[in-house]
Amino acid sequence: MARIVATVSGGLDSVVLAHHLVDQGHDLLMLSIDYGQRHRKEHEFAERTAVRLGADYEVVDLRNIATMLPGYSLTDSNVDVPDQHYTAPGSVNVVPNRNVILLSVAFGRAAAEKADKVAIGTVAGDDATAPDCSREFIDAFNAMERVATAGYAPAELQVIAPFIDVAKSEVINLGDRLGVRWAETWSCFNGYDVQCGLCAACQDRRLAFEKSDVSDPTEYRNG
């Protein structure tokens, strides 16, 4: 059994990741990182997951960092979340360098408690718009941390991304087998009480359910 620090937002992929790691018998610390995102409602669902799984859970308060990240729909209230799917790199829905920030915090926490691994729920295709979801990025980040924490963290401590080659629809199929409660996951980039159904994250969610063998129980504001 390994001690794993996982970044779990409350989104579909990260909630399945948490279930997967616990199913494998690992000792899990779930970190939800508040970087001032407009959809911080997702953390409610991460906490529910932690309670259900009996996992340790912490919220890291980095809300003030949003003021340093203007121009993106997730961190700038002056930028609307567009009702459209991702297109080319440069989408206002992507906060460049976000995973560098999130994983640096998670890795620091893991090093401090001598954990075995850090886990992130990146899935296949995420790197099409977000370069810091790519295998190249994960490899480079681990190389950097080997230097940054040499002598202060377990030599085997590294970031793992178990779903990096797995399509979101297949992640849903796995989660269904593990008993994930889909109504208790949050994908929407907006901060509504109900997921909008139109933003890029909602469209990705809906499409993935369509491609999976699982029916989508999500309530959407727009059909």
Rank of each mutant, 00 (worst) to 15 (best):
Y220A: 06
A140Y: 10
G36I: 00
M144T: 15
I172Y: 02
L178A: 08
C196V: 13
N222M: 06
D56S: 09
R38H: 05
W182S: 08
V60T: 06
L174Q: 13
A167E: 14
V59D: 00
V180W: 08
P217G: 12
E210C: 06
D61A: 07
Y35A: 01
F45C: 00
G54L: 09
V194I: 14
D132N: 12
D61E: 09
K211E: 15
A148K: 03
E145I: 05
H39A: 13
H26W: 09
A183G: 13
L31Y: 03
D193E: 15
L62Y: 14
V147N: 10
I101W: 11
N173V: 02
D116V: 02
S187Q: 05
S104R: 02
F189E: 03
V51F: 03
A148C: 14
P70A: 11
R221G: 00
G175L: 07
G108V: 06
D27R: 13
D216V: 05
R38D: 04
I120Y: 15
G25F: 10
V8S: 05
A119G: 03
S212V: 10
F141E: 00
E47Y: 06
V147C: 12
P96S: 11
R40L: 08
P162V: 05
L207R: 14
R40S: 14
Y220F: 15
L103C: 06
P217I: 10
E58T: 07
Y152I: 11
V22G: 01
M144L: 15
N78S: 15
H85G: 12
G54I: 06
G54Q: 07
L17R: 09
C196S: 09
A124F: 14
Q158W: 00
H39R: 03
S187A: 12
P82C: 08
V95L: 07
Q203I: 02
E170C: 08
A143G: 07
T87L: 11
I138Q: 04
A150F: 13
V159C: 10
V81G: 09
P131G: 07
V81E: 06
S9D: 03
R206V: 13
S14K: 02
H20T: 11
V94P: 09
R205A: 10
A111E: 08
L31E: 01
D132Q: 03
N64M: 04
L174N: 08
R221D: 03
F163S: 04
A153S: 13
Q37I: 07
Y57H: 15
D213S: 15
G36E: 01
R3C: 01
L103T: 01
E113N: 03
R40Q: 12
